[in-house]
Design a protein around this nucleic acid. Structure first.
Length: 800
RNA sequence: GCGGUCGUGGCGGAAUGGCAUACGCGCUAGCUUGAGGUGCUAGUACUCGACAAGGGUGUGCGGGUUCAAGUCCCGCCGACCGCACCA
């Protein structure tokens, strides 16, 4: 009989749906297991093989967990707000909600073809008012707890489109769409105070199981550093406060630098002899894009503030103050003390401006290069610090500064607060009103969801305001606090908002009175296993951890961390190892493969393609190998002899059960499939019984469920194979009666001998010595000692 | 520069310190089918040797530890990913 993959797959997908076999049953007698994949943005391009890799992998995990008897929660939904949809809507004059509806329908049909075991009863959609009502509710809670605030922030402004761009839309300093220059503009933005959680986000990485590279990236992004604030007196009267991680080098501070945006530059206007020059420099810096300020940073530029000097509190010396764009307003205090002898940037600047370079840590040659080593140097030219090591000197200096009230130990983070507003239409409206009398007033919770109104045009306005700002009858409202006239906030939330808590909504997707029921959250949280792409290991992971910690603080959830285990898959590249992209024309749709070979082949190949955590190149040739394998599995139907598991295969079958299970846990899907292939090869070599085949089908079912279901039925077994218990293995049965071991002489392989499993040391030695090739190699020499590794190897060491 | 990951056949890739190259692709030869971009069987790291028996060498390079190293340690070289004027 032919293996008709297409018919088989449609047949079983329909039956699974009819019997709702993948529903999370909530059975309290079962232990829960929550498997999560990142929900897709339903773009118009449809499903990509890149989606299939993580979905298939986690589908295997979810299926195995069900077979192991867990109450499995494996949901799917749509992260549907976002710019591509909005841009498509603008270009084609279709409502973004309609675009979203169509894209979701298309995506869902493609996902269904793959035979995934999602529980569609729990589908969520971030653009559904029943969903974003609670996204808005979380925002109000953040506002209530002082974690949302408004601030003036520089934003990306496209000079041609006349609109604000998200960072992702700025590519190499130009607008992604029109290619014109992008500059920074100040705009008032909603911000979320994620920095208040910086330390907990860092500390609690110890509570979770993430790959080391992911933890490292999170730590790096949070960027904790320890140092000190130091106050410098100035001739203008104001104190210049700087942050430094090297207070030990204070005696070597020969000048200071403030960032172009530093407020004193304006405050000192009248004192500056060269204000015009300074203002021109500042204006030039503002015009520079982020790209220019970072990429084209070879030459240090700056202007001295003539008329104002500072005093080094350690030396008492008068030192000049400069403005330069190598100092950022957004980190530390926006001003630095420059120690050119021991900081590369300061060294470059000092060289460019002919400033003195003083050595205060011995160990290098500061006239040649900055000496930045903190491990080996000792302090010199530093008064009371002389002779100390760097670490001691830091502590001594902080103590000295603190005693004089001139400084204090400070911990700093690179993490910045989250810019939470977008001047866009297709996002969650921020539920706030601006009242001239009361200020920013939250929309009452009872009025949520604050619906996104219908607008005539989704195009951004010339001023960079959201399209919502044109809707006067929506904007004009009544202040809920004083009853006076007020205006609605017209900015919307970023796409990150909806995805920062979606894992909670899956638990209780239809709840109309709470974001999630407390008892249900207690049952299903935390997510036991969350897999996603490396591109989300900083922002999405950090944002959702932040929101979850906040929800923990206000009692919505009871686990401090949302994800117990996080894993990451590698990207699927095109044939030549290049990234798949529309412009290269090398994008592969999983449905092409499903049409040609079937979903089971596609599922197997996407997992067999290589190490799950590494990038892998698509190979159309190699797909055939997986189809061939399934043909061979199918061919076993005609070969299966009656009978239980055959003694000849028992050991290998038990080993395969163990290996497939362990490999799934360790993301080694490729070797799990290889083990199944090897078992099938063995069945072809030495025959197969119905009992053998039965076990094979239960092991293969998570990977290739359709063919297994069909064969299960044809063999006359009852029920669904996907509901069978996962087979148990008996460690005692994984070993053969006899085993071939390696015989080495002096560490080199010389022969192999077959011994009874578990044979005693002396017996193995005797067997090895009886081997003709070993006698020949030894050539009369005596064996002075030997190392025997049970059932593996014996190594003979010969004397002279 | 900082942080992280990693270098194994023609290719994707396997190997708790214990027989390197499992499994798959590709390739070669033979058989099968009217034909084959089908299926089956055998072979497939390099090298000396007669493509034999039998040796030797092999996991980026150089050292080291060990009875034994792809695996552990030290030093190079190279690749990839993330961050980056973060004081």
């Amino acid at each position: 009989m032919q293996y008709e993959s297409r018919n088989i797959e449609q047949k079983w997908q329909a039956r699974w749906a009819r019997e709702r076999v993948y529903r999370t049953d909530g059975d309290p007698k079962k232990e829960k297991y929550y498997v999560l994949v990142e929900f897709p943005y339903p773009s118009g391009n449809g499903l990509h093989v890149g989606h299939a890799r993580p979905y298939t992998a986690m589908d295997v995990v979810a299926r195995r967990r069900r077979m192991q008897g867990f109450d499995v929660l494996f949901p799917m939904g749509w992260d549907a707000f976002g710019l591509p949809t909005e841009n498509y809507a603008i270009a084609n004059k279709i409502h973004p909600a309609e675009v979203t509806r169509r894209n979701i329908a298309f995506f869902k049909s493609q996902i269904d073809m793959m035979g995934y075991s999602f529980d569609w009863d729990r589908e969520v959609n971030t653009t559904d008012p029943g969903y974003y009502r609670w996204t808005q509710w979380i925002f109000l809670k953040l506002l209530e707890h002082g974690l949302a605030y408004k601030a003036r922030m520089p934003v990306n402004w496209c000079t041609s489109c006349k609109c604000v761009l998200a960072n992702e839309e700025v590519v190499d300093g130009v607008c992604e769409r029109c290619g014109s220059e992008v500059v920074r503009r100040e705009k008032s933005q909603w911000m979320l105070k994620i920095t208040a959680y910086a330390q907990r986000l860092l500390d609690d990485l110890d509570l979770v199981e993430y790959p080391e590279r992911v933890k490292a990236q999170q730590r790096n992004w949070i960027g904790r550093s320890e140092g000190a604030d130091v106050d410098f007196a100035t001739t203008a009267g104001e104190t210049l406060r700087v942050y430094t991680t090297r207070p030990d080098t204070l005696f070597g501070a020969t000048y200071m630098v403030v960032s172009p945006e530093y407020p004193y530059v304006e405050a000192w206007r009248d004192k500056l002899e060269n204000y015009g020059e300074v203002a021109a420099y500042r204006a030039a810096a503002a015009r520079k894009s982020d790209f220019e300020r970072t990429e084209l940073q070879k030459e240090k530029t700056g202007v001295r503030l003539l008329g104002v000097d500072a005093v080094n509190p350690a030396t008492g010396g008068v030192i000049p103050v400069f403005v330069s764009d190598y100092v950022l307003m957004s980190y530390g205090t926006g001003a630095i003390m420059a120690v050119p002898g021991h900081d590369e940037r300061d060294w470059d600047f000092a060289r460019a401006f002919g400033l003195p370079i003083v050595e205060v840590v011995a160990g290098g040659d500061v006239q040649t290069a900055a000496f930045t080593d903190v491990e080996t140097g000792t302090l010199v030219n530093s008064g009371f610090l002389n002779g100390l090591e760097v670490r001691q000197a830091k502590a001594a200096m902080i103590e000295w500064l603190a005693g004089k009230g001139l400084g204090r130990a400070v911990t700093n983070y690179k993490l910045r607060d989250w810019v939470f507003s977008r001047q866009r239409y297709w996002g969650e409206p921020i539920p706030v009103l601006h009242c001239p009398a009361c200020g920013a007033v939250p929309v009452p919770e009872t009025e949520l969801p604050l619906l996104l109104p219908e607008v005539a045009s989704y195009e951004p306005t010339d001023t960079g305001e959201s399209p919502l700002s044109k809707m006067r009858d929506w904007v004009d409202a009544v202040c809920p606090r004083c009853g006076g006239p007020a205006e609605r906030e017209t900015d919307t939330m970023p796409q990150w908002a909806g995805s920062s808590w979606y894992f909670l909504r899956y638990i209780d997707p239809k709840n109309g009175t709470a974001a999630v029921d407390g008892a249900l959250a207690r049952r299903y949280m935390p997510v036991d296993w969350y897999n996603g792409g490396m591109e989300h290991t900083t922002l999405h992971l950090l944002y959702s951890r932040f929101w979850h910690k906040f929800l923990y603080d206000i009692g919505v959830v009871e686990t401090p961390e949302p994800y117990a285990r996080r894993t990451s898959h590698g990207m699927i590249l095109g044939e030549g190892g290049e990234k798949m992209s529309k412009s290269r024309g090398n994008v592969v749709s999983p449905n092409e493969i499903v049409d040609q070979y079937g979903a089971d082949t596609m599922r197997l190949y996407i997992l067999f393609i290589g190490d799950f955590e590494k990038a892998a190149s698509w190979s159309p040739q190699a797909v055939k190998g997986c189809r061939r394998f399934l043909e061979r599995v199918w061919g076993l139907l005609d070969r299966a002899a009656p009978g239980a598991v055959s003694p000849a295969h028992e050991a290998e079958i038990h080993r395969t059960i163990r290996k497939v299970g362990e490999d799934i846990e360790h993301l080694k899907f490729n070797t799990a499939i290889a083990a199944l292939m090897a078992l099938v090869n063995r069945f072809y070599e030495t025959g197969v019984t119905r009992g053998d085949l039965r076990v094979l089908l239960t092991l293969l079912a998570p990977f290739a469920p359709h063919i297994c279901e069909e064969m299960w039925e044809q063999l006359g077994y009852k029920g669904f194979v996907v509901r069978e218990p996962w087979p148990a293995f008996d460690p005692a049965k994984t070993v053969e009666d006899e085993v071939e071991i390696a015989v080495q002489v002096g560490g080199k392989l010389r022969a192999t001998v077959v011994i009874p499993t578990g044979a005693a040391d002396e017996d193995v030695l005797a067997a090895a010595l009886a081997e003709p090739r070993i006698r020949k190699t030894l050539d009369g020499r005596r064996v002075v000692r030997h190392i025997y590794v049970k059932d593996k190897l014996i190594n003979l060491i010969a004397g002279k």
